[in-house]
Amino acid sequence: MKEMTLKERVHADLAYQWKQIKRNKVKYLFLAPYLILFIVFTVCPVVVSIYFSFTDFNMLEKPNFIGIKNYYRLFLADDLYIKALGNTLMFALITGPGGYLLSLLMAWFMNELPRAVRVVFTVLLYSPSLAGGMTNVFKIIFSSDAQGYLNAFLINYGFISVPIKWLENADYVVPIIIFTVLWGSLGTSFLSFIAGLQGIGKEYYEAGAMDGIRNRWQELWYITLPLMKPQMLFSAVISITGAFSIGAIITGLAGNPSVDYCAHTVMQHLEDYGTVRYEMGYSSSIATVLFLIMLGLNTAVQKLIKKIGR
């Protein structure tokens, strides 16, 4: 008797849903072109990646299911991967929050300037993020011979007498990469911060002044940042995602592999196994783990930001 009611309820529910779907036909038609492409080029690759991470696919032979062997190899038998993971975390922890704070700080500094001046600063500070790393120019600036701009400058002013191999020395190449990444980090989130700050009504500050806000730090912490929370959440997502996918800039500046793998990141490791060695199964497991790290960290940071001003 009970089962019947359950069955009936499920049936009734399904019938209702189906009716809803039929009633909303036009909406699905509007959604369909975008959604089909989204499923094919974003959802499918995620599924494919997870699936192949459990196989030994190499593009030539039929993939065999090998369980968690790839993951076993990844964490227990691939020292280079562990090194890449450490480097990726290091780069992400510096350039992620670094770029985020720089964007917020610069947007805040320019917030009360006249409109025309603000636009000029916005365009100037945003333009490096359009340069895609501009690695060929940075390579000349940091070139290892005396003609490299930095070497020539230092030699000319007597700081050094022998040119330094900036990009071939592990001690220098890592800071140079961080500098280059930060240089291009005032991008989409920077714009979001500027717009968010501009959108806060004057009345909030006036009310704050009445409630005893003493200086601009208090204003920032008690009024501005809590009202900016939506932009801060959005920018955090953009920054974290970017910070964990650093790879192309390193390949451009220091090559893949870099000297002694000193700057080797997970993205480069992925590129190596996926597009050079064609170990698709193994590279899929690299991609899947990176994917999970990005999702996990984003979720955690979202929770953290929601606590601001409380």
Partner: peptide, 18 residues
């Protein structure tokens, strides 16, 4: 919205297969 949380570059290889 969730896909904003990871970079498309991660999917380069499965994208090729698709």
């Amino acid at each position: 919205k969730g896909t904003l949380m990871f970079s498309g570059a991660v999917l380069a290889i499965p994208n090729y297969l698709v």
